[in-house]
Design a protein around this nucleic acid. Structure first.
Length: 491
RNA sequence: CGGGGUGUAGCGCAGUCCGGUUAGCGCAUCUGGUUUGGGACCAGAGGGUCGCAGGUUCGAAUCCCGCCACCCCGACCA
């Protein structure tokens, strides 16, 4: 047991905070609400980027980059959008500093006030649609399928590393289409891309669904989301895809001539996934020993640790270790050989468990004698001794096995913690005492949703796509309902 | 923005109530040695504007006043 880590069952929130710091993924910056993503955490983000980017390209998207700064006036063009973001925008008002005549430091030069203030993007719909206006004239210019990798700023009051910070990294896709059907199809396609990514690469089972009107993106007609369940029973929204209708096209006057020569407004979507996913990754799989990373996103997939008594032994072991490393790398596996002499093997074992490295190989004098290695998997902590010659065949399968096992474990947890509930008392009991996803009937009104939220802190994560038509009564008001929705307390 | 808490070495803390030698401990760091199959040990060394700014006093980490920062819990959010 990692004694430097808060016990997960004693204090989940503290366990999470400890883990992020101790596994060396990120730290709080001197700038309030902002984080420093350290190399080990950033390496995970790079893996996420690489896989998602491939998936975006495979579905016909291209990358581009739009400015960090958005003229303030752009925000007032789409009424709902303004409402949604106004409260958390950082604003640039000046463009120059000067020496403080009275003191040592610098001050904002009052003479360098911007004519029009610039908003640091909380999301880029407005500035992108302002460009699209110039790019789109005819149906021949459509569709536009653009993604951008960027940072955004939302001035949050309470922040937590990866889960909610004032500045975060994400990708935002912004597409423009000739027809409503095509835009809806795109919205669906991308939520499916996110779901596939979550399940295949993050080993994170998700529920796909619609957001309630109340939880929708500001300015969207419809928002689709994937919801994941964390080990403490709370839900985490892991990615969203929005059907924006013609709202932004109208706000920015983006019209095109269709095949029949008629003018119409362009149909839009946007979709995003952020570094918050790293928080989900941590909270979904990790344990009291530390991180548990799915092999497909682990910066280091295999670590090799030598065990030796003296210099000669160390040299002999190094030869074997480096040979194994080389062989594994030729199979496309990322391997680290840790031959630092300032920590004992036991220390290293614990440290790589804390960092969630999927597979550990230890080589000592006994192994040298028998041509074996000790191989340990992070997910189950099971160790076995195998012949050196067999590791090239063994490790790829083992990594796959670990990836599947982590996913299956999370799936089982999701299944075990999803409840069908028809009585209000039971609803409250589960939300308050057990957590998890509660599938219950809802009368479809924002009013009821708000009341449930106020009484239990549970919100509608989503209305699952696969939630069947079913006559029932609203868990709260008893009014008729056609399908169950997913309730949970949420991050 | 409300409620609570904390600021002392890179990290974690003691000392503060009740002012008084040179501000201490653990971890980490550096040097030397012994070690190495689950977070090693011995010896030595370096490292501090005690959050900031005023005040009281012969004397302030300690008392008084003001400010700042951070953390936790609530209202808002990916």
């Amino acid at each position: 047991m990692a004694k430097f880590l808060t016990n997960r069952d004693d204090n989940y929130a503290q366990w999470y905070n400890d883990l992020v710091i101790k596994a060396d993924m990120a730290e709080n910056s001197v700038v309030r609400g902002c984080m420093v993503i350290k190399p080990y955490g950033y390496a995970i983000w790079e893996k996420i980027q690489a896989e998602l980017d491939k998936m975006f390209k495979a579905t016909g998207h291209v990358n581009a980059y739009f400015p960090l700064f958005i003229p303030k006036s752009f925000f007032s063009k789409e009424a709902k959008h303004v409402e949604g973001f106004a409260k958390e925008c950082a604003v640039v008002t000046h463009y120059r500093l000067k020496k403080d005549e009275k003191g040592e430091g610098v001050i904002v030069d009052p003479e360098a006030k911007l004519e029009e203030e610039l908003v640091v993007r909380p999301t880029s719909e407005t500035i992108i649609w302002n460009s699209y206006k110039n790019w789109i004239h005819s149906y021949r210019d459509l569709p536009i399928l653009i993604n951008q990798w960027a940072n955004v700023v939302r001035w949050e009051m309470r922040t937590r590393l990866f889960l909610r910070t004032a500045e975060f990294l994400w990708q935002e896709g912004h597409t423009a289409h000739a027809t409503r059907e095509e835009a809806v199809e795109e919205t669906e396609r991308m939520i499916n891309v996110y779901a596939e990514f979550a399940e295949k690469f993050m080993a994170l089972p998700v529920v796909r669904g619609y957001k309630s009107e109340n939880e929708r993106f500001a300015g969207a007609i419809d928002t689709y989301a994937i919801e994941a369940l964390m080990q403490d029973g709370k839900a985490l929204q892991a990615g969203t895809s929005h059907f924006l209708g013609q709202n932004f096209a109208k706000a920015f006057d983006v019209q095109f001539t269709d095949k029949t020569g008629k003018l119409d407004y362009v149909w839009a979507t946007s979709w995003g996934l952020s570094t918050r996913m790293i928080g989900a990754l941590i909270m979904a799989h990790s344990d009291n020993h530390g991180l548990v990373l799915p092999p497909k996103l682990a910066p280091i997939q295999v670590v090799i640790i030598p065990i030796y008594k003296n210099r000669n032994e160390a040299e002999d072991i190094s030869k074997v270790a480096l040979r194994l490393k080389d062989g594994l790398e030729k199979k496309g596996i990322s391997v680290k050989y840790d031959d630092r002499d300032n920590n004992k093997p036991g220390w290293k074992f614990a440290d790589y468990e804390l960092k969630g490295v999927p597979v550990r190989i230890a080589i000592g004098p006994r192994d040298l004698e028998n041509n074996t290695v000790e191989i340990a998997r992070r997910d189950t902590l099971i160790k076995e001794t195998i012949p050196q010659a067999s590791i090239y065949d063994h490790v790829p399968g083992l990594l796959e096995d670990i990836q599947n096992n982590i996913f299956n474990k999370a799936s089982e947890f999701l299944k075990q913690n999803t409840y069908r509930v028809d009585k209000w008392e039971e609803f409250v009991d589960i939300i308050e005492n057990r957590g998890g996803f509660v599938m219950a009937h809802w009368d479809g009104t924002t009013e009821t949703e708000e009341k449930i939220k106020n009484e239990t802190k549970a919100t509608i994560g989503c209305i699952p796509f696969d939630s069947p038509r079913e006559d029932g009564k609203c868990i709260y008001t008893g009014k008729p309902s056609k399908r169950r929705v997913l309730f949970a307390r949420s991050y």
